[in-house]
Design a protein around this nucleic acid. Structure first.
Lengths: 341, 341
DNA sequence: CTGAAAGCGCTTACAG
DNA sequence: CTGAAAGCGCTTACAG
């Protein structure tokens, strides 16, 4: 019942270990091994039910053919979809993937990176949390193949794939404006992040392009530390004290959740009383939100592109200058317009 | 930038490799190494940023501390939820998990098991597909720690965790009967599987217990090979030609999907025109099905129990008779009653 | 064309 | 108390 090794095969075939290894790795040409011998060895290997021990291969070659995937929560639909596509892409090049959830817990996130490093993964695919910056920086310095998805650290030259926040938001605003909405509110979270600035910029620009003024009265920046109940109340208050508004653009998932709650509380109907657009970073409104319009990330494109960036790094010679470093790939957002039934 | 090894530490500390290893593995007692020396070695290890190479440890000890998780589709909410809980449980005992999707493709499923074996995973957590039987049997014969979830092979003595189909179905029927429904139809798929027999048995028994006869006229067994469109049509036909029925019990996910489609086609309202219960194996109706009542698997319990069964196998001495083999754990189903709004 | 040897980074008897 | 040596299962120069 013990596992068959190349040694067993070599013994049975009466040849050296290295011969078996060469045959099994298809290096008969390079090693000028006769086809006849090769066939015999292959036959014996099959007979004995040989399966290579990848742990040994990994130790010897320094390649585990395993990728590390770090997400916020694997059970979330967005991350699960990401995991699926990454699995497929990895599979197509003979890689397996080890997944970890960070729960947005910084300590856990750091620990995850360490564990995956110890397990010698060949590359990392990460949805970074803010506190991971130092670890990401270290991985990058160690020249570990690494791609960030969904979020990134401005100033850190690490390849990353993110949605095109500006144009996605622009599309959404365009949609509202075309539908004739004029007093469009903007509810966001006070966060000094590029993607937030880009979304806001798109809001401003599209209003101006339509010949409308940006009215700060119609912009509600919630505090990052504001608790759920309080956020809902603030939004409720905001909406009810701005009688003229006919639409709201919620700039993030969380704000959107609170916003929909507030709108429900106020007894307003979407979109007849109030049109709603939400930037749905993590695809949480995918099924159960009739009437609203959603700007979502193209999860498949993001995953596929991330894998391509990773593979590109695998192919680079470690010595060579990493020409592709600091590469940012912007993926166009999808606009999903839900009917109100 | 090269990785620090225990050799480097030994060199720096001026001691033998084995001493470093003993210290780092907390075996100072067994090896009677002075606390002073141990402290010094630990200090040096920390200084040098030592991270053990788990590939080497795995090769040497024969334990990778990696689990293989094989599901149908990691992006499905049910499997993703399973993956999350398994990750947590695995993490708590220092394990990582490698996931694979089978897509219900038998060849792929078999190939996945082979790959995971080659990667020397310490244990398998599998949602088996029918065609995996031979491979599962082989793993079991090889004494590989292994637990099946959600499905199993009757007659194969492999530990598995499944939902209690009989009592879950009984609960659902009870619910309908208590609500006063009397002519309850049963739509199922013709499949000679234990879980199907158990569900049907519960249907029959609960009717009889309520003093009602089982009317084969009210039972629709769809062919396994029936195409979606055709299935919907058959159900539509079935319902419309049985004017007396006031409720339907759909015995599986797929049948339920077709059934809801058919009911929609007929313009019937749930539950006012027709009450609906569905055995929702994979939690696909979780969000978007108002009015229907769902019998679902307790995904957390299943995952946790599966991990426990796996750990039990890790703890067993390989020589010892596997006392817990062929163990079946039934988990009680959940009944989710949706309001019709 | 083929095979003996070194070595990947560890752990674990075992000798002193 | 400490250290030299073997070995996990491979691959890869290198010698013949």
């Amino acid at each position: 019942m013990k596992n068959v090794t190349i040694k067993d095969i070599a013994l049975r075939a009466g040849v050296a270990l290295s011969t078996v290894s060469a045959v099994l790795n298809g290096k008969t040409r390079e090693s000028r091994i006769s086809e006849q011998l090769a066939d015999r060895v292959r036959g014996i290997a099959t007979d004995m039910g040989y399966e290579p021990n990848q742990t040994a291969v990994a130790l010897r070659t320094g390649k585990t053919r395993v990728l590390g995937l770090i997400v916020e929560d694997i059970s979330n639909v967005f991350f699960a979809a990401l995991a699926k596509i990454i699995e497929e892409e990895a599979d197509s090049i003979g890689y397996k993937v080890l997944y970890c959830s960070t729960e947005n817990n910084e300590d856990k996130a750091r620990e995850r990176i360490r564990m995956l490093s110890q397990r010698q993964v060949d590359g990392f695919l990460i949805i970074p949390t803010p506190g991971m910056r130092a670890e990401i920086e270290r991985l990058s310095a160690q020249q570990k193949p690494l791609v960030l998805m969904d979020r990134y650290f401005p100033g850190l030259l690490v390849p990353h794939v993110v949605v095109d926040n500006y144009n996605g938001s622009l599309m959404a605003m365009q949609h509202l404006l075309e539908k004739g909405y004029r007093r469009i509110a903007y509810v966001t979270i006070q966060l000094d992040q590029v993607q937030m600035h880009q979304r806001r910029q798109a809001y401003d620009d599209s209003l101006r392009n339509a010949g409308l003024a940006v009215d700060e009265e119609l912009v509600l920046p919630l505090s990052y530390y504001c608790k759920p109940g309080e956020s809902v109340q603030q939004i409720r208050n905001f909406i009810s004290t701005r009688p003229g508004i006919d639409a709201v653009f919620f700039a993030t998932n969380y704000v959107g959740v609170y916003g929909l709650e507030a709108i429900k509380d106020l007894g307003l109907r979407i979109p007849s009383d109030l049109a709603v657009i939400c930037f749905d970073d993590h695809d949480i409104f995918r099924l159960y939100t009739p009437g609203i319009t959603i700007v979502k990330q193209p999860v498949d494109l993001i995953a596929q592109t991330a894998m391509q960036l990773l593979i590109r790094q695998f192919e680079q010679q470690p010595g060579k200058a990493a020409g592709g470093n600091g590469l940012q790939v912007l993926q166009p957002a999808h606009l999903v317009i839900r009917s109100s039934t």
